[in-house]
Design a protein around this nucleic acid. Structure first.
Length: 320
DNA sequence: TGCCAGGCGGGGT
DNA sequence: ACCCCGCATGGC
């Protein structure tokens, strides 16, 4: 699918306050490889019109959009979590055998949030698949749809919107997502019909989870991951087989009670802790992750070609 | 080759 | 409430 890139106009620049945030780690973690270069990262803001921010490690940023709107920095604050006080998360993490090394090494890491639509697609691609397979699917979806924007001399892929997927499913079906395609289409339908009327941000997380689970193919894990990734609300942890086994192994609790134990430990930070564990262990498959825990290798391995902190490797692997 | 992985829903008990 | 199975695809 070749489409003409949409030209975006420069909407201003600025510099985010330090606040102890490591903008580089924050921007590049779990970010698709074509939104990363060696010197900056691109972040799509979860708003209409299409708006993208080039963020540099220093916190300096430039914003581009089809139509410049006011308050862009406000949305950037939400995406980066600038008003999120993580000190109570760090307090628990520093005493935790799984996360203490990770937060000591990266105290400036924050979750980078996305739109609810894209958060759900992200979760669905993780269902019953390895980290590598799931993130390859996401890359392929973006490339197969072929939507792009141009800013200055650069051309940058952009993810498809729900309406675009619904009106033209074939690029999705060719993205090797298997039976997940149906679920993604269900989500696209949701956001182009009744779901668009519902203000998920005004609902309690348990209600949001129930609402999202009404979409066929979206279960507890996907719903909770999406709530964390798009709303920065962390009280409901996504706990998959991978994390459940890790919790059982590290804390010696029966897997049946892993969620109960996790929520008791992390409280309103439960989902953030779930995600942090995946970064600390480079999202390695279970067997390897357990081996890493046994060896005490609880910080990201810079040598890996594909990991949450090093997504560049996906660009050299994906070929449709 | 065959097995199975950051789920899920539908069918059974 | 559980338990169990099939499901697309790709990696090992």
């Amino acid at each position: 699918m070749t489409r003409e890139p949409e030209k975006l106009e420069f909407c201003g620049d600025g510099r985010l306050p330090s606040m102890g945030i490591d903008y580089w780690i924050t921007a590049k973690t779990y970010n698709l490889c074509f939104w990363l270069s060696s010197e900056k990262s691109y972040l799509y803001l979860p708003i209409e019109p299409t708006t993208i921010v080039a963020l540099y490690p220093s916190g300096y940023y430039e914003a581009y959009s089809t139509t410049c709107i006011s308050g862009i920095e406000h949305y950037l604050y939400k995406v980066i979590g600038l008003s999120e006080d993580v000190s109570s998360f760090h307090e628990v993490a520093l005493k935790d055998p799984l996360l203490n090394e990770f937060v000591s090494m990266y105290p400036g890491w924050r979750l980078r949030s996305t739109s609810m639509w894209w958060a759900l697609v992200t979760g669905i691609c993780q269902q019953n698949a390895s980290f590598k397979q799931g993130w390859s699917m996401l890359h392929k979806i973006v490339l197969n749809y072929g939507y792009r924007v141009s800013i200055g001399g650069e051309v940058i892929p952009r993810p498809p919107q729900p309406r675009e997927v619904l009106e033209e499913p074939s690029p999705l079906l060719e993205s090797r997502v298997g039976y997940r395609a149906k679920t993604i289409l269900n989500v696209a339908k949701y956001f182009t019909s009744g779901g668009s009327e519902i203000d998920l941000s005004s609902m309690k997380p348990v209600e949001v989870e129930r609402e999202l689970r009404s979409i066929k193919g979206v279960g507890q894990y996907t719903a909770r991951l999406a709530i964390a990734l798009s709303q920065r609300r962390y009280e409901l942890p996504p706990i998959d087989r991978w994390l459940s086994k890790i919790i059982g192994f590290v804390y010696g609790v029966d897997e049946k009670y892993s969620e109960e134990y996790w929520v008791e430990k992390w409280g309103s930070w439960s989902a953030l802790a779930s995600i942090a564990v995946t970064i600390a262990l480079d999202a390695e498959p279970l067997r390897k992750a357990l081996e890493r825990i046994r060896c005490g290798k609880l910080t990201p391995d810079p040598g890996l070609k594909q990991s949450p902190l090093n997504m560049y490797g996906f660009c050299s692997v994906i070929n449709r």
